[in-house]
Design a protein around this nucleic acid. Structure first.
Length: 753
DNA sequence: CTAGGGTTAG
């Protein structure tokens, strides 16, 4: 690994402070500027916040009456600000009989530094009302908040005010203004302003570099970077981060190692960026090395780095490591304005929640969320959307409803993110109606929200409805994105709408200029396959040059099996096994296809090959929720406490179903079992057990909802259809890919899944 | 006795 070249030569560097440039001298201020390196600041400068100092001084000056003096009061306020006690500072400020520009500025810059932007703008407004004239420091801080909030109007207003009041623009103020325009996406303004700047320093170039990166103009940014006479640590951070965000991870990695060789020492942000880089490249080893360096620097307790580390480990699938780091989170402070810590604390929590969700550990996600509520951590929008998504994946409607109610209770407004999560959640928990309700309630519809609803319909077998909604969305002036097209193509394929699907595929390419990705191609192959146009698939694959995509071949193979084209299937599977020699699905598909064509020897050969290569297949599992318990079954399961009753009821039920036409077709079972072994225990697939238990333990009239981790086989599908007819019960089954709503002997999927 | 640029989460 070339990452072993991350050597340690900078670790012992003692060049803590380096004077890098001297500012222009203007009328009021004349002093040297120091460029300092991140964390060294607090360790070396002796600026460590002293917790008790402001309090003692405050008490002392109250006693001897010196607090009446404005200068003393300002000094105490600044000490409070420094030790992160913004609420005390704010209180002292509010109680003051008189204030000057410095008092305002101390407070404003304090809030700006910890990112409490709204407070900054609020204070600035008050300051103007009291007719106090802001100085350059105030303006810089306020502009910083404007750029964080992307408040273009405010920023432009302040710029105008500066011009009309003849305030001297020094390079710092210039940079702040430039940054506001860049952050607000007003590049024309930014460029125009840049032209007029009298002086430009490293910060200026860094801002411009960031701007080029932001609009994706890599060439310009890199050119600028290469020509930069002095590159400080931020220049490197900016370029590396920008490259990574624009999808050039490898290049970013190269630059990072170049930085190690010839660049300045890493600072906190470099470490953060490097960690994100490691996780986006899925290189755990790199992440570990960075972690090691972080530990050697002793900066592992920094909030930002902690969240970056948690995130890196969770993206690399190492939740145990992530949770170890999470546990180092110190106990929380209860001050109202210690936002800096509070913020990273909240991010750490929500990183954990979303990490668990991402890694499929929904139970832990839910537990973490519950402790978050119990510990009274501010639940932010990220953890909320994550947790709703966890509910969606667990698929337990009751849980989803609880969370929904809780979010409403804490008064969080349903925005587009949360709205689409709700739609997704209700859809995946089997309640299409609730998804509709949320969709209709939301006022600010955006593409994601529309797409969620279209996907919900497709998921529940309402392909035609989904297509109609898609058309309606376009009519309403929404521009579909690549996900919308995946969803609508998917809907077409489920509903067997070949013509429409082809139409949308070309619409996507020609009208919306979206380059089809793997998922679009797979949907198209699926669409042709279900319609039985197997020859056209070959042509499609060839024409689009997508023969390297295994998911395409997999879909092709399913279609061969569906249309019982054994020879073609054999040919397809050879290609598939070349691409994915260790994918269980391919083997199972192939072996089942052999079996369906009575090629028992070949089927057995496939299973043997699987065993030889050490590939295990996933066991079929179905579950049903009853009150507060989840009852889970596997094929032929006898571990349930009521298993005797369940089996005898199931046998009786099958007998009654046979009277109305159900037949347990051995060959059919053989054909369609994708993952569960058809050879044995024909009648006792896990979903049958779960349904039997469901019928026994609920009163009639209530729909039975069960979930399965794999696809339903044809026999079970038939079984459920007959059951719904015989007992006049609605049965809703969520399988690996979609929902089946069984009612009066029919299924919403139209026997096409 | 105070200021500007780059980092995290769906």
């Amino acid at each position: 690994m070339r990452w072993t070249c991350l050597n340690t030569k900078y670790i012992s560097s003692s060049s803590v402070l380096k004077p890098t440039y001297v500012t222009n001298t203007n009328n009021h201020f004349k002093f040297q500027r120091f460029q300092h390196y991140g964390w060294y600041q607090s360790r070396a400068v002796g600026d460590l916040p002293n917790e008790s100092l402001p309090d003692t001084l405050h008490a002392k000056s109250v006693k001897n009456g010196s607090l009446d003096n404005l200068d003393v009061r300002n000094y105490v306020t600044s000490l409070y600000v420094k030790s992160n006690k913004l609420d005390y500072a704010h209180k002292l400020f509010g109680e003051s009989p008189d204030r000057d520009v410095r008092s305002w500025t101390i407070l404003i810059s304090g809030f700006a530094r910890i990112g409490y932007c709204r407070m900054v703008l609020e204070l600035f407004k008050q300051m103007r009302i009291e007719r106090v004239c802001p100085n350059q420091f105030t303006l810089s801080s306020v502009l910083k908040s404007c750029s964080s909030l992307s408040d273009f109007r405010m920023g432009k207003g302040i710029h105008g005010w500066i011009l009309s009041n003849g305030i001297d623009l020094d390079v710092v103020l210039d940079n702040s203004i430039l940054d506001v325009y860049v952050k607000c996406g007003a590049f024309d303004y930014a460029e125009k302003f840049f032209e007029t700047m009298k002086e430009r320093d490293t910060v200026t170039w860094n801002v411009m570099m960031g701007a080029y990166m932001y609009i994706g103009d890599m060439e310009k940014a890199l050119d600028l970077f290469r020509r930069l006479p002095f590159k400080d640590v931020t220049s490197w951070n900016t370029i590396i981060y920008g490259l990574m965000r624009n999808g050039h991870e490898t290049y970013a990695l190269e630059l990072l190692s170049e930085m190690v060789e010839i660049g300045p020492p890493f600072d906190k942000v470099t470490f953060s960026v490097a960690l994100v880089l490691a996780s986006s490249l899925y290189v755990l080893e790199l992440g570990r090395q960075i972690h090691g360096r972080v530990l050697r620097f002793g900066i592992q307790n920094d909030g930002f780095l902690r969240t970056s580390l948690i995130d890196m480990y969770s993206k690399c699938g190492k939740m145990e490591k992530a949770s170890l780091i999470f546990k180092t989170l110190p106990l929380r402070t209860n001050s109202k304005f210690t936002c800096h810590e509070t913020k990273t604390e909240v991010v750490s929590w929500s990183s954990m929640v979303s990490g668990y969700v991402r890694n499929g550990e929904y139970e832990y996600a839910l537990l973490t969320f519950c402790s978050m509520v119990r510990e009274q951590i501010m639940v932010d929008r990220f953890s909320l959307t994550s947790i709703v998504s966890a509910c969606a994946n667990v698929g337990i409607l009751l849980l989803g409803q609880h969370i929904h109610a809780h979010i409403q209770k804490i008064g969080y407004k349903t925005d587009v993110h949360l709205g689409s999560s709700y739609i997704d959640m209700y859809a995946k928990c089997g309640s299409l109606n609730d998804a509709w309700v949320i969709f209709k309630q939301t006022v600010d519809l955006n593409v994601v929200l529309w797409t969620s609803m279209i996907s919900a319909l497709a998921l529940h077998g309402q392909g035609k409805e989904a297509v109609r909604l898609f058309e309606f969305m376009i009519q309403e002036g929404n521009k579909p994105n690549e996900v919308s097209f995946v969803v609508v193509l998917n809907a077409c394929s489920h509903a067997g709408l070949l013509e429409e699907g082809c139409k949308y595929f070309s619409l996507m390419k020609e009208v919306y200029g979206i380059k089809p990705g793997t998922e679009h191609f797979t949907c198209m192959v699926d669409l042709y396959g279900r319609a039985g146009r197997l020859d056209e698939i070959k042509e499609f694959i060839h024409k689009n040059g997508i023969s390297q995509l295994s998911s395409v071949w997999k879909s092709f193979l399913s279609s061969c099996r569906l249309h019982k084209n054994f020879e073609l299937g054999k040919w397809v599977s050879e290609r598939l096994l070349q691409l994915e020699p260790f994918d269980e699905g391919s083997y199972v598909l192939l072996s089942n296809m052999c079996a369906a064509n009575h090629r028992w020897e070949e089927a057995a050969g496939m299973r043997r090959l699987m065993q030889k290569r050490g590939i295990n297949k996933v066991a079929g599992q179905s579950w049903i929720q009853q009150k507060n318990q989840v009852h889970s079954f596997v094929m032929g399961d006898r571990s349930h406490p009521h298993s005797r009753e369940i089996y005898s009821y199931l046998d009786e039920l099958i007998g009654r179903l046979k009277e109305i036409g159900y037949s347990l077709d051995v060959e059919m079972v053989m054909q369609d079992v994708e993952e569960e072994q058809g050879e044995v225990l024909l009648g006792y697939h896990s979903e049958k057990l779960a349904i039997a238990y469901g019928i026994m333990s609920t009163t009639s009239g209530i729909p039975i909802r069960i979930m399965k981790n794999l696809r339903v086989c044809t026999d079970c599908h038939n079984f459920i259809k007959y059951t719904s007819q015989l007992l006049d019960r609605e049965i809703i089954v969520r399988d690996l890919h979609r929902f089946h709503h069984f009612k009066h002997g029919l299924c919403s999927c139209g026997d096409y899944w």
